[in-house]
Design a protein around this nucleic acid. Structure first.
Length: 345
DNA sequence: AGGTTGTTCCGCCACC
DNA sequence: AAGGTGGCGGAACAAC
């Protein structure tokens, strides 16, 4: 009965001939699966409405031969797109055709209406062509980073990130990184518990081991942060065991404690303590996934000091205990062996 | 478990 | 005048 009143958020995928099929299917499955786990009550329950668009709406064939049919043509795209996802593929093929121009023109027109613009893999080149990366930080497939930088010099290319958020533009690295990004967006929209359930169903890791750019706390905070706080946010994410009290951080930021709290909230949408806690939670998750450390050491290395604090934070934010989380998400032992070496560095 | 202690956050006001 | 900034104090909460 109540289901018919639940709000919808449109996620529109844009594809083209010679697309990379996984760039579409991976994120698509993540959003679809999120619908199954979405809360039915709460502050503002909603579901994702998924549509797939192409220039003429006929069909599109992937660069590996898979064919996608019954697509929606661009001129019949819904007017209220929440999240616009541009899949990657063979950009050279796209640009040889008229399809490329139609797509970039459409993007230029419609992008301002969407809440989020997302690219997967070489989809970043399509955003670049539409001018959407100008002045933004962005990433793409590792093999394309130099090319992207040369063709769109106004963009700041981040070569070693799994995904990058800058205001409303989210770009991800090669192929399956799009799945990680989609999962992070679901986490942002529907919370950790839903993301956790989706990851479990799809047998994904909620957070990839290695690399600082993976942190979801960082993702949601940096999305709206100005230049002034970006370095500080990254520094915090890389130093969860440091003294991250308001006093210490305001020193580092070069302003008073009072003003620091005010500016931080204005820039990131959360208070300093909340951000610090999320960063430490992320680190703890990663350590649970990749090590067999006893919880006491793990808590300490995550900046949470004691097991009691670790457990409290997990219960509060995820609704499960650290051991429970580890049982679900720990990497296979032989993988964990390698990962724990880099994690302790 | 429950009290003590410390920290955070924010409204208020004053200063530049 | 007005907007950014800093200090104070109390309520709320976390840590122990």
């Amino acid at each position: 009965m109540s289901e018919c009143r639940i709000a919808m958020r449109t996620v529109a995928f844009v594809i083209f001939d010679a697309l990379q099929a996984l760039d579409l299917v991976g994120p698509y499955e993540v959003f679809a699966k999120a619908n199954q786990h979405a809360p039915t009550s709460g502050p503002a329950p909603f579901r994702y409405e998924l549509v797939v668009l192409s220039a003429d709406g006929d069909h599109a064939q992937s660069n590996s031969g898979l064919c996608f049919a019954n697509l929606l043509p661009l001129d019949r795209a819904p007017s209220d797109i929440d999240t616009l996802v541009i899949a990657g593929g063979s950009i050279a093929t796209l640009e040889r055709r008229q399809e490329g121009d139609r797509l970039t023109n459409w993007l230029r027109d419609r992008s301002s209406q969407a809440r989020r613009i997302v690219s997967v893999c070489t989809g970043a080149f399509v955003l670049g062509a539409a001018g959407l990366l100008d002045g933004k930080r962005a990433t793409t497939h590792w093999a394309g980073c130099n090319d992207l930088k040369m063709r769109y010099p106004l963009a700041t290319v981040v070569p070693d990130a799994i995904y990058v958020a800058d205001d409303k533009v989210f770009t991800s690295a090669g192929v399956t990184a799009g799945i990680d990004l989609a999962l992070a967006l679901v986490e942002q929209d529907m919370g950790s518990a839903v993301a956790l359930a989706v990851a479990r169903d799809l047998v994904l890791y909620l957070r990839r081991p290695g690399g600082q750019s993976q942190f979801s706390a960082n993702l949601s905070a940096q999305a709206h942060a100005g230049e002034r706080f970006r370095d500080l946010l990254n520094w915090i994410a890389e130093h969860p065991t440091a003294d991250l009290s308001n006093d210490s951080l305001s020193d580092r930021a070069g302003c008073s404690t009072r003003n620091f709290g005010r500016l931080f909230k204005a820039q990131t949408g959360m208070t300093p303590a909340v951000y610090v806690e999320l960063v430490r939670l992320d680190r703890a998750k990663m350590l649970l996934e990749t090590t067999t450390w006893p919880l006491a050491r793990l808590a300490e290395r995550a900046g949470l000091a004691t097991v009691a604090t670790l457990v409290r934070v997990f219960r509060r934010r995820l609704g499960i205990t650290p051991e429970h989380y580890r049982a679900r998400f720990r990497l296979a032992p032989n993988l964990a062996e390698d990962a724990s070496v880099s994690a302790s560095a």
